[in-house]
Structure formats: structure tokens, C-alpha cells
Design a protein around this nucleic acid. Structure first.
Lengths: 233, 233
DNA sequence: ACCTGAACACCGTTCAAGT
DNA sequence: ACCTGAACACCGTTCAAGT
């Protein structure tokens, strides 16, 4: 009975949860999170959409799995960060870990919105936060301060901030809002002034005049430095 | 010809953009953002879904309008904040404005995710940020520092932070992840320890052990204090 | 145990038609 | 100028049926 089906057994790899999840990540990377539908994902795997339900409870579970996949990679890479040598070293270790997390997420531009739409904690995520908390406790934080610190960092602890009005940010194409440059200078004098000064100095950063990485690190250091101060109290 | 239709002219208020937008806000408030569909909203207004397209370009435009509505209310309320008396007063004024913005958004729990999903700036929003920028300039910030500050604050400048894994937060119902308390204490020792210490002290805050308002203000002051420090440099 | 195909109850949006 | 009704191209998900 096996003989009859042996010939066309080509690359007929059986589907499983991991294959579904990695295909989902690649699909979202390639065509955006909007293209990640059950039907489209099934097609990607050469299978009907309904087959996916054998490996994933529903779409929510699919997205949870996808996040778990990314955070799992973060946790692997973060394991290489040198441990703390003394209490004062907490900030260095925390900064390193967070920037590693960022480097993993940065190639999945859809990840922030998917992560923020999750409603339940997953083991990998708990593990990531537990390690950060451990660093702060070694750094001499009280439980209470460490708890506040986690909330203050928010998604920054995972390496991202949701930029408000992302692409052309605060001003670039003023016609998006139907406001002329002259009208804008009158209605929004402070922004207009800032644009004039900052936009004319493109030497500072290689990217546009809002370098996401630079801004992320500025905000991160502002928070970590502030926490380092409080830690001593 | 008017006579025949005069009798049943009851409360036949003609639809317009503003009525559509306020109905959308109320619908989202009452039944959640998921219930805000064109069909449902039309029904709410006693009209077919397709009629809405006479007052709103599409759903994206509807959501932009809804955000504009909320920010417009913020801008009105924020006008009452006393102006700056001297440069050192910038932080007080900024804090006051941001907490007013928060007080407006707090009754629309769906607002953060809708705002963060916007891709283009709207006039009301630009106006809000322009005013904040003005405060910082009066406070002696360089354009460059003020620009960094805006990015560092991010959505906090509008009065909200997207809490990661919102409802039962970091631990409450540990069975959501299928992990027993004992297993959790082993796998996540730091979080387990924190939960034991903090959860047993419910006197501090009236709400659960994560008071959103307290945490928001902690993070906000951390950032504002740090910026105040840099301002002097 | 895994996959299929048809179906259901939804979406946003178009288009031609009404008044 | 505004509204309607049918239709189109999608969603996630169910269910009975196949192998």
C-alpha cells in the first residue's frame, strides 16, 4: 500500500505549527501584515485555508504564535549579553539587551502593532521581562521601583516605540493636510521654525532628519539615566 | 408639493459630517471599536451604510475625523492652562496640558489604538504639538533638544501609553498561559518574587496593583525631569 | 490525523438607480 | 444633493465529508 504513493512523495513535507508560523512571518515581512490572512497563508503553503486550523486554534492564536517566534529569537540572541559585574553595571546590561531586541524587531516593521494588539502574556515574553527585572534587582532596585520602571519603559523595553504618524512624520509633505507652507507658518509657528532650522541641516544623520535609531536611543537613555538616579535614593 | 410630506417631518435631521463623527465616537464608546463598522454606524443613524459615504470619504477618513474630534476637545480644554510665567515654568505647563489630554482620552479606551493607526497628521494634532513645542522653546530648549524631546515622549505627549498586554497585566491569572504558580516561581523567579511582595500590599493604590494613572505620571515625570536637566546644559 | 469544499455571517466599497 | 439596493471581492470560521 505504501508503494502506490511513494513515487509522487516529492517535497510533501507535512504541515506543522512551526512551519505555519514561520510562513506567516515571511508573508508579513514580504507583503505586509494586511496580507496575512488565513486564505493567503494557506495558499502560501499550498494548502486550503481551513487546513491551518489543524495547527493553530484561530487567527488570534496564529498572531500569538508569530509574536512568540520573534521573542524567542530575541531571547536566544540576548543570552550572549555579558552578565552584570556589579550593581552599577545594571544599566549597561539592560541597554544592551534592549538594543538587541530592537535589532531583531527592526526587520519586521509590522511587529510593533501586532505585539501591542496582543492581550495575553506568553511564556517567552514573560521570560524576557523576568530577565530585565532580574537586572534591576541586581542593580539595587526595590521591587516597587523596578515595577514602576517596567511601566515607564513600556514597549521600549522590547526595543520599539510606536511612532505617531510614522512615515513623513511631522511636516515633510505639508500638502497631505491641504495646508500651504505659508498657512502653516502662521498657524503653527513653532513647528515651522523648527522645520526651517533642522531640515536645513541634513549633515547630522544619514537618514531623513528623523533617525529612528537615534531618537530611540535618546529616549531610552533619558529613561535609564533617570532610573539610575532614583535607584540610589 | 411640500404639504404632502410636511406631516411626517418629525425629527428628520439631515445627516452631516459632524453628526456622523459624533455617532461614531458614541458607538465606539458603547460597543467597542470592533463594532464601529459602516453598516453598524449607518443603522445607528437610521440610514443605509452607503449613505455615510456622502459625508465621509471612506472608513479611513471616518477614523481620521473621529481622532480630529477628540483632539479638538483636548485643544479646547487645554486653552485654560495658565501660560508660562518664566522659563523654569515650562515643565508645569507641559505637565498640565498632557494630563488634560489624558483626562479626555481616558473615557475613550479605544482611542490609543485608533490614534496609533493613523498615518497622516491632521491640523488639530499639529496644533496640539505646536503648542507643546512652543512651551519648550520658551523654556530655553534648542530646536534640536525639543525635537528629541517630542520623540522621547511619543504618545505620552498626548496623554496615553499603550500598555503591553493590558488587562490582567503581568501575572494576575497565571493560568492564562497554562503555567502553574509553582512552575512560574521556578521559570520566572524575579517576577514571582515581585508579585509576592507587591501584590500583598493592596493599601497603596485603590485600584488593582497597577494604577494606570500613577504609572503614567511616574513615567511622565521621569522624562520631564530628565529633559529639564538637559535643558540647562 | 490531516485535508477539502461548500457554506455562513460578516467586512468595505462600487455602481446604477431612485427622489 | 442625498439616499437606496443589489452586487463584488474580500474576511474568519463552521461543519460534514473525504483520505
Amino acid at each position: 500500500m505504501t508503494a502506490s504513493t511513494e513515487a509522487p512523495s516529492e517535497t510533501r513535507i507535512p504541515l506543522n505549527r512551526e512551519r505555519v508560523l514561520t510562513a506567516a512571518v515571511h508573508l508579513a515581512d514580504r507583503e505586509g501584515i494586511g496580507a496575512l490572512t488565513m486564505r493567503h497563508l494557506g495558499q502560501e503553503l499550498g494548502v486550503e485555508a481551513m487546513s491551518l486550523y489543524n495547527h493553530v486554534a484561530n487567527k488570534e492564536d496564529l498572531l500569538n504564535g508569530v509574536v512568540e517566534m520573534l521573542v524567542s529569537e530575541i531571547n536566544e540572541r540576548v543570552a550572549d549579553v555579558p552578565p552584570i559585574v556589579d550593581a552599577d553595571d545594571w544599566k549597561r546590561a539592560m541597554r544592551d539587551r534592549i538594543l538587541i531586541a530592537r535589532s531583531v524587531l527592526v526587520s519586521h516593521s509590522w511587529a510593533p502593532q501586532v505585539i501591542e494588539s496582543r492581550t495575553e502574556m506568553t511564556p517567552m515574553l514573560i521570560g524576557y521581562y523576568d530577565a530585565l527585572l532580574g537586572l534591576m534587582l541586581q542593580g539595587g532596585f526595590s521591587y516597587d521601583l523596578a515595577h514602576h520602571a517596567m511601566h515607564a519603559l513600556g514597549s521600549r523595553a522590547l526595543g520599539f516605540t510606536q511612532e505617531l504618524f510614522a512615515p513623513d512624520g511631522e511636516g515633510g509633505s505639508s500638502q497631505a493636510t491641504g495646508v500651504s507652507v505659508r498657512e502653516m507658518a502662521i498657524a503653527f509657528p513653532n513647528l515651522a521654525g523648527m522645520l526651517q532650522v533642522i531640515a536645513h541641516d541634513p549633515a547630522e544623520d544619514s537618514l531623513g532628519w528623523c533617525d529612528d535609531q537615534t531618537e530611540f536611543i535618546f529616549g531610552l537613555d533619558l529613561l535609564l539615566d533617570g532610573l539610575d538616579e532614583l535607584r540610589g535614593k
